[in-house]
């Protein structure tokens, strides 16, 4: 059974939410922030980024706070924070599980 998007946050979604912890941002800022955070390991394609922003706005994970010219700036909501924290906890559990298993952490 394939998993549906938003059942769990995908890697890109997780990093987009992470980027908002540095403050309100527009699409270009988010792409740069993720590039900086991951040291260039994760490059999010523009279509993926705008799909995630659209989806997050619909799910009330982020909200638009200003439109300057044709630049839209968003900030994370409490719901977005909660989703981020939940995903972070899940990932921590994954790491802990891997570390507990003998030979699981190389």
């Amino acid at each position: 059974m394939p998993k549906k998007a938003m059942d769990v946050l995908t890697e890109s979604m997780f990093y987009v939410l992470m980027a908002f912890h540095s403050g309100p941002m527009c699409g270009i800022d988010i792409a740069e922030e993720i590039d900086r955070c991951t040291g260039g390991r994760l490059r999010i394609g523009p279509a993926t980024l705008y799909t995630i922003l659209g989806k997050f706005e619909k799910e009330n994970y982020i909200e638009e706070i200003s439109v300057e010219g044709r630049k839209r700036t968003y900030q994370i909501t409490e719901l977005g924070h909660a989703a981020y924290r939940e995903e972070l906890a899940r990932l921590r559990h994954c790491i802990e599980d891997a570390e507990r298993v003998k030979g699981g952490c190389l």
């Binding site: 995908t10 890697e11 890109s12 979604m13 394609g45 279509a47 993926t48 799909t51 995630i52």
Partner: peptide, 10 residues
């Protein structure tokens, strides 16, 4: 980079 870098988001 590809426009869509993540299949689940695509």
């Amino acid at each position: 980079p590809e426009l869509n870098t993540e299949s689940e988001t695509h």
